[in-house]
Design a binder for these strands. Structure first.
Length: 556
RNA sequence: GCCCCGAUAGCUCAGCUGGAUAGAGCGACUCCCUCCUAAGGAGUAGGCCGCAGGUUCGAGUCCUGCUCGGGGCGCCA
């Protein structure tokens, strides 16, 4: 896919290469928009990066780079300047903007997509909340993060699988079954059981279906299955769908755990002590060794998880990304150690730490504990503020920052709500296109809406457009061209929250364009050019919102 | 005690792997609808980037120490 900014970067690299008599290692210069428009359209720090290797003052290197670039950008740049400590600033011609916009439109839906140097098969395992209760808001943050990350990785050219690990066996599940049984018999759940109202309802349903309160095995099975369905329904509402629901029970029943332990034993990392079987994780940087098989003969969750990750690798995963809650972050070093003990590079296992979400309203904070029965359910949050606001707010902040979600702000269906800022820009563009069709200034598609593809095609024809000349036009075009790099950067850094900032900035640039540039009714050529900019902006906003899992409305 | 994360505007937080005069939203204050959606725009006020050192042409960003807050240190998951 043509990426005009990537071509500019390549030009800078080649100019830097041409002057590298001292042959420094490859540098990765920045290409960014300077803080003030007077400083040019783009700026690079390449000279400052090269200066140490040349043993020259940054400004002198910058001057040499300037003349190299000046020659290479003859048709595209009006001028190239050296400024500040050694920045080389590019003032690009109208023609460059026109051609870049045309290239973007020509790429259609492929714009933003990229091909990594080394595409990977990535398995993103997320949410994986115990099927012993409804999803909490905290799980929702993990869902929003994991799903957006998966979407980003796909756009960045990787092969992605979304997977949910169902912890459908073990102590928590037993307590869950005991709690259901107690409710079926009209008793209170045990002290360490699940006391939520949903357990009462579930017990009623199972009783109606003829379940036997004495058969804990069966209650565990049907209870977790009922919860799994409920969780899946909540996630579906939330716009999150998994490729695979992986049952931990499968690992136990299929002797996968024994096989994994045996594998580790053959590699020489397993020993017995105090009646238990241990993995020598300290060999790989962990604080202490960890138990795989308890003295009562039951495998630990850790052993099951090792078998699980081994299974992921056997299924072809080249990278495993497991966003985990902050309350489990202590678990990460031992899992890393286990990956290494299995004979793999531990770096292919990544566990982004999800910090907590706190719901804030008038200073009050909801607690989130499933077992005590007082929790903030994701469904309740969606009912309250809607999917778009929920996902936008949860993705607004870096995953490793604790988030206070302000319900009062998120609930507002008004101008104060930051979600609508971006959506409104999209709706405004749709409105312009509708008007253009209504006045016969743009072709209509079969559905009566503007034929965006036709507009794009006409615009990308060579020389068809007047050049974007106003500052607001140029700024918007430049902003839209950032999408591919933004998407790749957000994917590589596992940081979907960057897209929220990008979407907000793009919307702001559109609103400024809207203020300064009349579209429908502008002089011939200019009107076509602006309609093309509108189409490009609409696509970028829709794409970005989609990556966030937020809708892009045609009207508001 | 050890480990992880955080500390940036009144509030909630960004800051693109070290670059130019540190940004956004909310809140406060002033303006702008004969005009494609005012869910918008223009502007003002608001900062010792937790503290102290260090690294270098340059540090909110990297290193060390400290303070405060959150979390974790189980043969639970």
């Amino acid at each position: 896919m043509p990426d005009p900014l990537e071509e500019l970067r390549a030009t800078i690299r080649s100019a830097a290469g041409a002057m590298r008599d001292a042959a420094p290692d490859a540098i990765t210069p920045t290409l960014e928009r300077p803080p003030k428009p007077e400083l040019g359209d783009y700026s690079t720090n390449a000279a400052m990066l090269l200066a140490p290797a040349f043993g020259q003052a940054p400004r002198d290197v910058a001057e040499r780079l300037r003349s190299e670039l000046d020659a290479r950008l003859a048709g595209s740049a009006e001028r190239v300047e050296v400024a500040g400590p050694g920045f080389v600033n590019l003032f690009l011609a109208d023609r460059w903007h026109r051609e870049s916009l045309a290239a973007q439109l020509d790429a259609g839906d492929a714009f933003g997509r990229s091909t990594p140097e080394r595409p990977e098969r990535v398995l993103v395992e997320f949410v994986s909340a115990n099927p012993t209760g409804p999803l909490t808001v905290a799980a929702g943050r993990g869902a929003a993060y994991g799903d957006s990350l998966a979407r980003l990785l796909e756009l960045a050219g990787h092969e992605v699988e979304r997977e949910y690990l169902l912890n459908d066996v073990g102590g928590q599940v037993r307590r869950f079954a005991e709690s259901i049984a107690a409710r079926m018999q009209g008793r209170e759940p045990p002290e360490d059981g699940y006391r939520g109202e949903y357990v009462v309802e579930l017990a009623g349903d199972l009783a109606t279906a003829g379940a036997d309160p004495a058969d804990l095995e069966e209650l565990a099975r049907s209870g977790t299955e009922a919860m799994r369905e409920r969780i899946a329904a909540t996630l579906e509402r939330f716009g999150v769908r998994f490729d695979t629901w992986f049952s931990e029970r499968f690992l136990h029943e299929g002797s996968k755990i024994q096989a994994a332990i045996e594998h580790l034993r053959r590699r020489g990392h397993v020993y017995e002590s105090e009646g238990a079987i241990w993995l020598r994780t300290t060999e790989f940087g962990d604080d202490k060794d960890r138990v795989l098989m308890r003295s009562d003969g039951e495998p630990t969750y850790f052993a099951a998880d090792i078998a699980y990750h081994r299974d992921k690798l056997e299924r072809g995963a080249e990278r495993m990304i497991d966003p985990v809650g902050a309350d489990h972050h202590g678990y990460v070093p031992r899992m890393r150690a286990a990956i290494e003990a299995l004979g793999h590079d531990p770096d292919l296992y990544e566990a982004p730490i999800m910090q907590f979400v706190r719901l804030v309203e008038g200073g009050e904070r909801a607690r989130m504990s499933k077992r005590k029965g007082e929790f903030a359910a994701l469904d309740d949050l969606i009912d309250d503020i809607g999917v778009d606001a929920a996902r936008f707010f949860m993705l607004q902040r870096s995953h490793d920052t604790a988030l206070d979600l302000d319900l009062e702000l998120a609930r507002l269906q008004s101008q104060d709500n930051p979600v609508y800022y971006v959506q409104y820009a999209h709706a405004r563009i749709a409105s312009i296109l509708r008007k253009a069709v209504a006045e016969g200034r743009a072709p209509a598609a079969t559905d009566g809406m503007a034929d965006e593809a036709a507009l794009a095609k006409a615009a990308s024809a060579d020389g068809a457009l007047a050049a974007p000349a106003k500052a607001a036009e140029r700024a918007l075009v430049q902003q839209l061209l950032e999408l591919p790099a933004e998407a790749v950067g957000a994917a590589e850094r596992r940081a979907p929250h960057r897209l929220v900032a990008y979407a907000t900035a793009s919307a702001a640039d559109f609103h400024a364009f809207y203020r300064d540039c009349q579209v429908v009714g502008a002089p011939d050529g200019l009107e076509q050019a602006r309609l093309a900019i509108c189409v490009a902006a609409k696509r970028v906003l829709a794409r970005t919102l989609d990556l966030l899992g937020v809708s892009a409305p045609e009207r508001m």
